[in-house]
Design a protein around this nucleic acid. Structure first.
Length: 205
DNA sequence: GCGACGATTCGCT
DNA sequence: GCGAATCGTCGCG
């Protein structure tokens, strides 16, 4: 298990970073509880031209300032007043790319995740951006945490897992109708065969 | 200061 | 399939 390096996140191409993040491991540790889970679905938000991005046209506010930092930080915000959303900040300083983690596959700490979620069914634990934050204990207080340090409450790790490139689905992002034509861009990635993906494509016959 | 709204989830019909 | 929950952020003036 190896920490992803600080340099990895600063790559200027957010699509490359997104492809690399699929299959990597998120580990949270605090309150003497450790949870790990594999990333199986994410969405790219590409500054400054992406209307879906909070940093569209490089809009700089108290909330978005963290996205402009050097890659390798967590961007966590509250959605609908209830759900936390976890993003990986990428790109060099001043370039506001963010990658929303939409689904993960639980590996360790499943008992803790069940207790945080208040449910027993494993497939429901982390198959959505709000759900996985609840399961892993990710809150807005994680905003700005570094992802490349052992001492962080949240880290990203590589265990050598490799997916088959043909298994990677690329399609439109979810829930961003306000982004108009940008909503159709293929910025959502997920592993086709994985049962923890949120809202997988329904195949019609 | 205030009103509108959201990168969602859950429960009920 | 639909609507409510629930609150921080943003834009307006």
């Amino acid at each position: 298990m190896q920490l992803l390096s600080r340099d990895f996140y600063q790559n200027t191409n957010p699509f490359f970073v997104g492809e690399q993040l699929i299959g990597k491991i998120i580990e949270t540790s605090f309150d003497q509880k450790v949870c790990t889970a594999r990333i199986v679905e994410l969405e790219i938000y590409k500054a400054p031209e992406d209307r879906g991005s909070h940093a569209y046209q490089n809009k700089l506010t108290d909330r978005t300032k963290i996205i402009f930092e050097k890659g390798g930080l967590a961007y966590v915000y509250l959605c609908y007043g209830i759900h936390h959303m976890f993003n990986v900040v990428s790109g060099p300083e001043g370039v506001a790319h963010a990658i929303l983690i939409r689904a993960v596959e639980p590996l360790q700490g499943i008992h803790t995740m069940k207790s945080r979620r208040g449910i027993e069914k494993e497939v429901q634990l982390t198959n959505g951006p709000g759900k996985l934050c609840q399961a892993l204990g990710i809150k807005t207080s994680f905003d700005g945490e570094t992802l490349f340090e052992r001492r962080s409450k949240i880290r990203l790790l590589d265990d050598g897992f490799k997916y088959i490139p043909d298994d990677l689905y690329k399609g439109p992002r979810v829930g961003i109708a306000y982004a108009k034509e940008d909503a159709n861009l293929p910025y959502r990635y997920y592993l086709k065969q994985n049962s923890f993906v949120s809202r997988p494509l329904i195949v019609k016959y």
